[in-house]
Design a protein around this nucleic acid. Structure first.
Lengths: 337, 337
DNA sequence: CTGAAAGCGCTTACAG
DNA sequence: CTGAAAGCGCTTACAG
């Protein structure tokens, strides 16, 4: 086990102090050109590499941010994670990625790890809705921005979609196509995006004087299989829908599978409307009509807010940035016959 | 900015040395029960949180590993990253995730960052094929295991698929279905998995006395669009294939799109065979026949090897672990009519 | 233009 | 059963 070469080795080699070496590395004060060059070549010669750990311990900055998502293998989160990593990299930050599996305990554990590792900030797509899960972070003065899912009573910054409006607009679009019996495949009730999209769905129905029917609602878990299962249940009931609004694309695609398996056609018999606009929604057959999330805006805004916070710029607490979804019409929806 | 409470604060509060506090935290030596309890409650009372950075600087262990992938929004890598993160978490490691974008420079930069941040090990799905890109890691005694893509002359551990065999078996399956004109949509030539799968493809053709034809080969970049584009080109040529072997599922699905758009049916007119068995391959219509990568084995083995290396257990260099793909027959392939 | 030295918050060999 | 002290590799206020 070869010991790694430190600043002191370089300093000794050149015959200067570590102060000087440090300053040539960081360009934090003027150093005589000759000395500077000698230091630089010594670093190369000895194969010196700075130890960020030591620097961080001293400076209090790790240039690392934590990103906690429910499940990075879900295409929606994968895409967000990818973009956030990219934006972070450009600003000189590494990202520690964690998957909470929608498990509040795991999320809490992860938050503790991130604090212990002294990350400069965290971006959280939260599993639970409890603000006290975030308290350890705020207590340790670690900036945090919440993305995608709100946490009640939290005083942190948030970047959210206007889910209620999106749910409303999606449903309204189906209503305007003449559908009167519109099923809805939701996500878990405790997640704010699902809850709010359902709220929008109900609002649109109300506006069109269509009664809300419990038996047109099925809850999924935002995954493919659950969409398939939910649709099968919906189709087994008496009041069979002519349109279905799935609260994400994965479930919508699952629902499509179920619909076709049972011999119906899309959109002739049943229109299907998704949510997210993941890459695959344009690939399936028929291509999925969906409410598109402004993914790039999402990532950009989230990172931007976090960086502003980390830089300590005086800004007021609890900034809320709300984005809008937009309807992307493809082949899976049609006017009711 | 509240200063965080340190070990010294706890020690002073209880009236013991930091030595003792450290030992109760890490359970590294016996501490009188009364003292131990006093320390523990003091930690709670003061809200003490260990600073891993300081510990790491002292101990030389960061409990962090680096994971570099070409693009974590690609479902195949996303799934691997997800599993590796999970396995790491269970063993007490956080993972810093980086995307190289198949850009050797970016990869090199990332490797330097990982070294500076003193990760305990790195898992690399490499972009380039040059062993000297890995030298900084080995020079710094950072264990590394290469996954999925080999790097020539590298002396590190690797976990690979037997790509040549997989390519051979896939092609052989199509040949046995009676296909004689089998197109191949490859990945970038410089990537070993692509190259080796093509090698297997050629070997199978040879075995069946079918000449290899340049104009049945199209190169893609492992992404959806490139599969679509490649297929369009293939179909515009005189010798139009009755089967196509795409070297990953994303391109296979792109190819399916192109085939159907041009009015052919799958598998009646053209059989399509993919590679990877990503989640979506079972969802598309028709469901994609594909060579399945043993993803779980992949992640497990990779993490296991890295952990063994990090623990410093005496094992010989350049361990090579080779996995096999397996054919999953679905609806997109059929006997040639 | 440069350096000696303190200190970031821990761990751990040494001593008792 | 416990503590004083060195040291991990840096940065930076202080001094000249």
């Amino acid at each position: 086990m070869k010991k790694s070469v430190t600043m002191k080795d370089v300093a000794d080699y050149v015959g200067v102090s570590t102060t000087t070496v440090s300053h040539v590395i960081n360009e934090t004060r003027h150093v005589n050109e000759l000395t500077r060059n000698k230091v630089k070549s010594a670093m190369k010669e000895l194969g010196y590499r700075p130890n960020f750990l030591a620097r961080s311990l001293r400076s209090g900055e790790t240039k690392t941010i934590g990103l906690l998502v429910p499940d990075a293998s879900n295409p929606f989160f994968a895409e967000i994670a990818r973009q956030i990593e990219d934006l972070g990299y450009r600003q000189g930050y590494s990202v520690i990625l964690g998957n909470s599996d929608n498990n509040p305990n795991k999320q809490t554990n992860y938050i503790n790890t991130l604090i212990a590792k002294q990350v400069d900030g965290v971006i959280l797509i939260s599993t639970g809705g409890e603000a006290d899960e975030l308290q350890p972070l705020t207590e340790n003065n670690i900036p945090i921005v919440l993305a995608d899912r709100d946490v009640s009573l939290s005083l942190t910054d948030v970047v959210l979609l206007d889910n209620e409006k999106a749910g409303y607009e999606a449903t309204r679009y189906l209503l305007e196509l003449g559908h009167k019996c519109i099923a809805c495949i939701t996500g878990p009730n405790e997640l704010s995006p699902s809850m709010l999209r359902v709220k929008g769905y109900r609002k649109a129905l109300e506006e069109f004087d269509i009664p809300y029917q419990e038996n047109l609602i099925e809850m999924g878990d935002f995954r493919y299989r659950s969409g398939e299962a939910a649709m099968e249940k919906l189709l087994s009931r008496s009041c069979s829908p002519t349109a279905v609004f799935a609260l994400n694309d994965m479930m919508a695609i699952g629902a499509m599978k179920a619909i076709m398996k049972l011999g119906y056609s899309i959109p002739e018999d049943i229109s299907v409307l998704g949510f997210d606009n993941i890459q695959f929604s344009s690939v399936v057959k028929p291509a999925l009509t969906t409410m598109a999330q402004p993914l790039a805006d999402f990532s950009n805004k989230t990172v931007e807010m976090l960086i502003k916070r980390m830089s300590g710029d005086a800004i007021e607490d609890n900034q809320r940035f709300i984005l809008s979804a937009s309807l992307v019409v493809r082949e899976s929806t049609a006017r009711k016959k």
